[in-house]
């Protein structure tokens, strides 16, 4: 199909879709309405379980089973990326060349790395109190380690990032979430039901199961993102350009055959 026909087809389909969307939008409750039946009930349920952050209460208490699924989507995606980006037989590893880094950049990275790790841990630990939680804090933690790559070089990153450990931690985080759900079954309640002591409202130890699930998610997201970025960095830095099939538009001299 040529480009013009394709664009025409898109415009026709977009017109129909847009028409239906506008028709649906006019039937929605008005923007900014005071009437939020689900929201009101979710807030009441979150306050009843002494969780100050209602969003965390929805994610890790009322909808904890959905978050379990979400966590395994993340786990599956990391697994898929590792499988797709593993080193092929015809690829060669090249030692990455260290680049020049300004001393001030190096100092900046060295000072900022521990601060960022601390912020990440804080965001994970206070998920039940303030905006944040396992997902957000986990990403901050993963970013922190990569300051070693930005401010120093790849070999430093490899030293602060034992990949096998983080790959195992990813599985441990995912497993811990599933196992924490069993606490509910042990107390003869439902799977992932919040049966732990609820603590004092607005205290670090409040919300029962919520901070524990947050910690499990934080470990999983942090190590998952680290493993994921490591796969892409390997492609960019570590693996020499692969052997291209014949007839490809850009076929460099094939040096990949001796890489087995």
């Amino acid at each position: 199909m040529n480009r013009r026909a394709r664009t025409a087809m898109f415009l026709a389909a977009a017109g129909v879709t847009g028409g239906f969307l506008v028709a649906a939008f006019t039937q929605l409750p008005p923007f900014g309405t005071k009437d939020h039946p689900y929201g009101t009930r979710a807030v009441a349920a979150s306050l009843q379980h002494r969780t100050a952050n209602a969003v965390s209460a929805v994610n890790f208490d009322q909808r904890a089973l959905d978050t379990l699924g979400e966590e395994f989507i993340l786990f599956g995606a990391v697994l898929g990326a590792v499988a797709l980006l593993r080193r092929a037989r015809d690829e060669d590893r090249a030692a990455p060349q260290p680049g020049g880094v300004l001393p001030s950049t190096r100092l900046f990275g060295a000072c900022l790395l521990p601060v960022t790790v601390l912020v990440g841990a804080y965001v994970v630990a206070h998920g039940q109190l303030s905006p944040g939680g396992g997902f957000q804090g986990g990403v901050v933690l993963a970013t922190a380690l990569h300051l070693a790559y930005v401010a120093a070089d790849y070999r430093v990153l490899r030293r602060v990032r034992p990949l096998a450990v983080f790959a195992a931690l990813d599985a441990v985080g995912a497993g811990a979430y599933s196992l924490l759900g069993l606490a509910g079954l042990c107390a003869s309640a439902a799977y992932l039901q919040n049966v732990l002591p609820l603590g004092t409202f607005n205290d670090l130890a409040s919300g029962g199961l919520v901070p524990l699930l947050n910690a499990a998610v934080g470990v999983e997201v942090a190590s998952g993102v680290i493993v994921l970025i490591a796969q892409f960095l390997d492609q960019a830095v570590d693996i020499a350009s692969p052997h291209r099939p014949e007839g490809g538009p850009k076929a460099p001299d094939s040096t990949g055959e001796d890489g087995r």
Partner: peptide
């Protein structure tokens, strides 16, 4: 924001359910 750590619990807040859905959405 639906976070009650520094506001009275009767303050009107936006719907936390959709915010949790957006979080799921972003991760996926």
């Amino acid at each position: 924001a639906p976070v009650f750590s520094d506001i009275p619990t009767r303050t009107p807040v936006v719907d936390p359910v959709v915010q949790a859905l957006v979080l799921t959405d972003i991760v996926v």
